Simulated assay, not measured.
Amino acid sequence: MTVRVLLADDQEMVRAALRGVIDRRDGLEVVGEAADGEQAVAEAARLCPDVVVMDVRMPGVNGVEATRRILSARTPGGAPPPRVLVLTTFDLDEYVHAALRAGAGGFLLKNSPVDQLEHAIRVVAAGEAVLAPSVTRRLLKTFTAPGAPGPPAPGPAGRLDALTDREREVLALVARGLTNLQIAEALGLRETNVKSRVNRILTRLGLANRVQAALLAHEEGLV
């Protein structure tokens, strides 16, 4: 099955380079481009791609707001919205946390190896999460550094009370960045069983994706 990709970046040269890289990969196809966030929202609605590769810093509507609009928009026939992979030049971008909060399924740097970009698109398309290593370190530091301002305040206390003990175990491993297969191997479960548990966790906690689940797990002290 081909993963259909929409590119959103204000630099035409960057879009051309990304298209050249992605279209050469088996099972990946660029179906459209957008030069700003407003156009990205419109093209996502028109083309219904599987993944939007989204720049953060664009004129007018930025990538964070565009991500929020894309993921909250109604889709034809109630189909799931596209997944969003944020791609940026800055590993210390102040929009990292906001983009993940908006529902982005991953965050990758533009200087990442080509194979890593391909892998990230496939992972995000499959509904899992991917973060650049430096971004992961930065997010973890946010939760652990003494006196750090930390992330936005968590929601109502006891949010994890809705989960079973096994679901808490799964959530803790999601927060550590493990894939469904790795979680299955760690807990002695089938991969399909883990996938259904992750989906149930997201539904019970009212979260959009695994990244948000990981952030919540850290906020609640599960990891």
Rank of each mutant, 00 (worst) to 15 (best):
G78V: 04
D50F: 00
L47S: 06
V174I: 14
L28M: 11
R168S: 04
T75Q: 14
T203I: 10
Q116E: 15
L140F: 10
A213T: 10
G77D: 09
I183H: 03
P113G: 13
L85P: 00
A184E: 02
G78N: 14
A175K: 03
L187A: 10
T2I: 10
M54P: 00
R101P: 00
E191Q: 15
S134E: 15
A132Y: 05
R176S: 14
A16N: 13
E33T: 11
R25Y: 04
V198E: 04
E43V: 05
G37Y: 03
N62Q: 04
A153D: 12
L6H: 05
A120S: 15
D26C: 03
E43C: 07
A79G: 08
G77H: 09
T75P: 02
V3P: 01
V53G: 00
V53W: 01
L171E: 05
K110T: 01
T67S: 03
G158Q: 06
S196D: 13
G106Q: 04
A172P: 01
R57V: 14
L6Y: 07
A16C: 02
V96M: 09
I121P: 00
P156A: 12
P59W: 06
V31W: 07
M54S: 00
E191T: 15
A34I: 11
V21L: 15
E33P: 02
L222T: 09
A42D: 10
L117A: 04
D161E: 14
E167A: 09
S134G: 12
G63H: 01
V223R: 13
G206Q: 10
L85V: 02
S134Q: 15
F143T: 07
L202E: 13
A214S: 15
A98V: 03
L117H: 03
P80I: 01
R4I: 02
A213I: 10
